[in-house]
Amino acid sequence: MAEKVNQTQNFLKGIIKENPVFVMLLGMCPTLGVTSSAFNGLGMGIATMFVLLMSNIVVSLVKSQIPSKVRIPAFIIIIASFVTIVEMVLEAFIPFLYEQLGIFIPLIVVNCLILGRAEAFASKNNILASILDALGMGLGFVVALTILGATREILGSGSIFEFKFVSEDANTFILFILPPGAFIALAYLTVLFNKISIKTT
């Protein structure tokens, strides 16, 4: 029973209590860089989640076979392999998204979230826990990126998932799809998130 609760926690913590973006500030670069629209945020989130999941699985499988001095390089190779796979698959089958996300796809490899989870969690826990952790964290990341993307898209382009809900000529806050808008939107979303998460717990 306790085990089960524990596993649920492993899964749930990533979404609110230890949300990688709002609480733990991991993977900020893509968070800010690709979220000019909700779709990009979602795409990036899923790509990251995939890499996170796969690398967590592999790392937790091979953890005891790796000497600690080469631990990080080994993890990085594992992660980088999955990133490269994602990169190639995206380029081949969803070229539109591939172009939108640009340099941030190879940069998934240096997303602190993934290495961080591999280091802090998967290298110490069993495979089931690692999978749940990856799913939870990944989902938290996806949610955060999508929310941020949606916020910026709504404010900046007057649309959501490319669906325009204001007239073509309406004035939208262009600032929000520009770099400063990413910081500012995330700043206030974090405040909001903290408020809500304090209330819920």
């Binding site: 520009l178 770099p179 400063p180 808008g181 990413a182 910081f183 700043a187 206030y188 974090t190």
Partner: peptide, 16 residues
């Protein structure tokens, strides 16, 4: 975090 992000945002705004 929020204030740091905000400062970064305003800095980025100025750099525009």
């Amino acid at each position: 975090v929020p204030i740091n992000l905000l400062v970064a945002g305003l800095l980025s705004l100025a750099f525009l």
